[in-house]
Design a protein around this nucleic acid. Structure first.
Lengths: 197, 197
DNA sequence: AATACATTACAACAAGTGTTTAATTATGTA
DNA sequence: TACATAATTAAACACTTGTTGTAATGTATT
């Protein structure tokens, strides 16, 4: 892996620098946001010449857009809610989000959140993500006040990631995996079932 | 208010451009974040020459720091919790946050949230704000798991503002003021009183 | 072997950035 | 009235940014 000092066409099975660039872009955008992620910096991470980035992706905006694929645990939630009893929703969704091995929320969404603050495009992707993930799911099972409840779900996830990863509050983060799950399940259950009207 | 085309010392009670600058900086940082808020743009809003900004505040970072005063409804919460019954906490805090005339969350905190994504300094201020506002309050009344619960409170506020103002989800925003209060009260009450251990 | 072409590198540009320097005007003070 | 000094501006500097132009080198194809 890495920079080849000399130019020239590479053999078919050499390192795919185009992929390397996207990988680097994802890391940089997630850590630094859009503006602070300079082409030169991304190039350095990918061990690539800056102009190579422009060669493959014509502009920084395109690079950004292509490195921001929305996370897709979407369908899982909808399918699940249809077949399990209401009282177990909280625990079930929690399992999707934090279950088996994942002790934190998906990293990809952190990048989206960070970038969304200043990049309209990121905000739009994030919106669509949440809508697919929650709004559509809740709507399809005819949950009352689904728009509000899905907003609250999105809000919960966003808030936890933001306060944990960006603001560096550790109250929730420091809790044991078990405790975290229990808490999250409780909150979600409440959001989905508390009486509104 | 406004730019005076000619240089020269102003009479004692002329418009205080220094204040005008901070006001413009707040607006710009809140709307655009740190990087996109150029000195020239801020100067334009304040109707002032860019170099005047550098004259009063030596660097952009200083200007940023001075325009980020933390919002201070802090004490109110703590004092309140001490004297009212547990069952009314949710409604009471809601009243502080959304009561009387304020139909949205304080604007100043939106700027902090937006900037925190890329500016460590803003993140720190936000952290301190939340700690003063919630953590200390909850601790002082010996609320069980106060660190977790205050993290959840911070998370709730952050999430609602972020999804509402940045991601542009409108499920919650579109609800009537009355409904909003009711929902917020319910969520807060749950966060503060649900059984953890 | 010749040629086309994909892949990379180097160097430079134009625009925008934060910042500095020097000059200009008006006020307060002696 | 004269002078020091605060308030403001205009112009430029040094640097970084995204981006481009051009050249070099290798692989695939014929």
């Amino acid at each position: 892996m890495g920079k080849t000092k000399n130019p020239g066409r590479r053999p078919k099975n050499s390192t795919d620098l185009k992929a390397e660039i996207i990988k680097a872009a994802k890391i940089s955008f997630a850590q630094l946001g859009y503006e602070k992620s300079t082409i030169r910096h991304i190039a350095e991470i990918a061990k690539v010449d800056p102009s190579l980035i422009m060669h493959y992706y014509k502009t920084k905006e395109i690079l950004f857009a292509e490195s921001m694929e929305p996370p897709v645990e979407a369908q899982a939630i909808m399918n699940l809610l249809k077949v399990i009893p209401k009282e177990t929703w909280g625990a079930a969704i929690t399992e999707i989000l934090l279950g088996e091995g994942k002790k934190t929320f998906p990293q990809s969404i952190l990048g989206l959140i960070r970038a969304a603050s200043t990049e309209e495009k990121a905000a739009q992707i994030l919106k669509k993500t949440y809508e697919q993930q929650f709004l559509n799911s809740f709507k399809s099972i005819n949950l009352d006040n689904f728009a509000i409840r899905s907003n609250l779900m999105s809000s919960l996830i966003t808030g936890l990631i933001f306060t944990g990863e960006i603001v560096n509050l550790d109250g929730f983060k420091k809790a044991s995996a078990e405790k975290k799950k229990k808490i999250l399940a409780e909150l979600i259950q409440n959001i989905l079932t508390f009486k509104i009207d």
